[in-house]
């Protein structure tokens, strides 16, 4: 009988030591929380010239850690083929080569449909809304009311982005010959400065940041995009859905950082116009809650 109890206790110990690798108490006890952030992704997360990890997602992570009273660490990772893969690698399972997941992943889309497909993840309230935008070289294009101008003028995109897929198909392929592909918005921005292209379509935050480095006549604007099914999405942190206490506490902290204006201040320190979000509820599957009780 005693033996059985002992084994049960052992099994329980084993279970909890695996199930709660990143739970709130442990993080506070260790005094350390690890954030996974995308590598080479200015202005959100990137290595500065001094080799230090910088960016908006990094500063928000530091602010969150500060509220928790712990140190923040950052793991830069390469994007996999989809955010679903990134969540598997960085939040709930880990990667067979990159090791165990981090405590939190930043810059995760907050979308009920997407959350439904990723039920091992708790999606905390978003801290930002990203928008699709156009950067236009006013030297080439005085004013653009719609995309028709790009039947004559060239427009740059990041390869395999939403803008890429959209423009190649828009106007029944009528713009296809004028879509120029770059490995990053940074490279597209350089091409626009060199007058190789007349415009760029991409994420507003990246456009504002990269073009903000140049003293040129660019305008960043919105154009009608018929047929584009999504032109903006909210972004927030995500944690393993089994760590309910951590999820709840971080969700509160993000809310406080939003209302206190700290997040907006971080964005403006990078020269990015801030678009807040209304959502304050985290998305977590009900069955996950019961499973951990």
């Amino acid at each position: 009988m005693n033996k059985i109890k002992f084994f049960l206790a052992l099994i329980c110990l084993f279970y909890f030591s695996i199930g709660n690798t990143a739970d709130l108490e442990k993080i506070i006890e260790k005094g350390f929380i690890e954030f996974a952030v995308y590598e080479n992704f200015p202005p959100y997360s990137y290595k500065g010239d001094d080799g230090r990890v910088k960016g908006i997602d990094v500063d928000i992570g530091k602010a969150i850690a500060n509220e928790l009273g712990v140190q923040a660490g950052f793991r830069l990772f390469l994007a996999d083929e989809s955010v679903g893969d990134d969540l598997r690698n960085m939040v709930w399972k880990g990667h067979y080569l990159a090791g165990a997941p981090a405590d939190v992943m930043m810059h995760v889309p907050y979308d009920a449909g997407f959350a439904n497909e990723n039920d091992k993840v708790a999606f905390l309230q978003p801290y930002y809304k990203e928008l699709i935008a156009f950067a236009i070289n006013t030297y080439r294009v005085r004013s653009a009311m719609n995309l028709e101008v790009f039947t004559k003028e060239t427009i740059g995109v990041e390869t395999a982005s939403l803008a890429d897929a959209y423009l190649l198909g828009a106007y029944n392929g009528g713009l296809r010959e004028n879509v120029k592909h770059y490995s990053s918005i940074l490279d597209a921005a350089k091409a626009m400065v060199d007058k190789d292209i007349s415009a760029i379509m991409g994420n507003r935050g990246e456009l504002e940041y990269t073009l903000g480095q140049y003293d040129h006549d660019f305008v960043i604007t919105k154009l009608p995009t018929p047929g584009l099914t999504i032109d903006g999405w909210e972004l927030g942190p995500a944690v393993n859905a089994s760590n309910v206490k951590l999820a709840e506490r971080l969700n509160e902290i993000v809310g406080e950082l939003k209302t206190s204006g700290k997040i907006e201040a971080i964005f403006s320190s990078y020269g990015i116009s801030y678009k807040t979000t209304d959502s304050s509820q985290m998305i977590i599957k009900a069955n996950q809650l019961s499973a951990t009780k």
Partner: peptide
Amino acid sequence: EPVTYKKGAAYLG
């Protein structure tokens, strides 16, 4: 999938 996500951004997958 008209909307999926890749590197923190919407994507047509």
